[in-house]
Design a protein around this nucleic acid. Structure first.
Lengths: 228, 228
DNA sequence: ACAAAAGTGTTCGGAATACACCCATGT
DNA sequence: ACATGGGTGTATTCCGAACACTTTTGT
């Protein structure tokens, strides 16, 4: 079929991934040194160009696999960034995604080869282009998501204690949460199930491990669920 | 400067606008018959291609002015849609926006010349391509926005009664709201101010008109404000 | 003994909900 | 008179926030 849109201009289309991970009670973010010009060597989000036959989601997935070695990663679209001057080398429109991954599961070797490094989300270095703005928007989105449904399935190990989950929420919300109230609220959502195993590494008494229920995807409408 | 990205493919970039308006107690949506092939004549969102030197927001603004005659329109980015087959004629990535406009203020002449028509948001005809999906996502976003802050400034006339505002929320939320509770909640937000004028067209007694306060943009963080 | 997390219970205030009820007025 | 929306008040319920308290166990 002939191209009916010939009169219009074409654009480079990129994806940039804000990769969130959780480790040592901190929400972290994977950055690498940009391997190409311009701004080669500057701290940057993981990015890549969108191919002709892939969706933006596929491109983001591909970028993630190349940099973390992980497939099957949770992705959420954030927004498109299209300031004509955002990339000094050319007009590139970038669609940002955020990803949630379990730090312990990714391919540390591959990450290192990419010159990548995990950073506490509150202590990141200066970033190239408009990547700081992208990160800010991604953080907002993650907060919003966390307030609408219980997140953690993609960030925590399969089994985790309620304290670990609370620390994650504290890192996302950037404020402390009452342990007792958090426990009651989270359990009332009925999306977790208790396991028989205990974790004794973080307390003398030991805390039961929980896991996400298999069918824990029944969140109602646009009603905010996690006030916490 | 020479193009450093030559190896990568370029793509057509379009914007599609979901134009919300409010009239006769109904949330409406402006559609037109697509003026070009493919799917010429099919019901479609207002769209256009992004130029080389404009942001996507600028492109959307331009499209809106061409179709409604209005400048200075409230716009919110929804998402990018990038299925390679979404447009049968070519690979076109589209970034969707929703717009809020006052139906009485737009250029009815221009709209008519565009073969455009307002539709109740729940009774729209079959749309071309993936526009139905775009509309669904835009509706979700509008609901979310309406629950985070008081909307209406862009949809209602400058002066409006609380009943009109409530009907708007009922149209957005798709459920009835208690008149007394709605009034108390909305006024407690402290973003409206009472005017001296009354509207007697909708009740025998007559209801005071309200308007949005000039400085009514102080919404706190990501805290949900409008539970309603 | 003490510290520190696990886990449970209680209290309190504010907010949402569900109403009742009076007011004003056009028909 | 009565229907209809305007506007106010109130009782009830629910939920989040604050916090007390007991349990368990490593040091």
């Amino acid at each position: 079929m002939k191209d009916l849109y010939k009169a219009h201009s074409k654009h480079y289309l990129a994806v940039d991934c804000v990769i969130f991970g959780y480790e040592d009670y901190e929400l972290k973010l994977l950055l690498h040194r940009r391997p190409i010009e311009p701004s080669k060597g500057g701290w940057s989000l993981m990015g890549g160009f969108c191919g002709n036959n892939e969706t933006l989601e596929m491109a983001a997935t591909r970028v993630l696999e190349q940099t973390t070695g992980l497939t099957d990663i949770y992705l959420e679209q954030v927004a498109a960034f299209s300031d004509p001057g955002r990339d000094p080398a050319a007009r590139v429109v970038s669609v940002a995604f955020y990803a949630l991954i379990r730090i312990d599961q990714h391919d540390a070797e591959k990450v290192k080869n990419n010159g990548a490094q995990w950073w506490n989300v509150n202590e990141i270095p200066p970033l190239i282009f408009d990547h700081q703005e992208i990160v800010s928007k991604a953080k907002e989105r993650l907060q919003m998501k966390a307030s609408l449904e219980l997140v953690g399935k993609e960030l925590l190990p399969e089994k985790f204690t309620l304290m670990q989950l609370r620390r994650l929420y504290e890192a996302i919300y950037q404020r402390e949460l009452d342990p007792g109230n958090f426990r009651k609220k989270v359990l009332s959502l009925n999306v977790l199930e208790k396991t028989n195993t205990k974790n004794t590494t973080e307390s003398k008494k030991g805390a039961f491990n929980y896991r996400f229920r298999d069918d824990s995807d029944q969140i109602n409408g646009h009603e905010r669920v996690i006030k916490i």
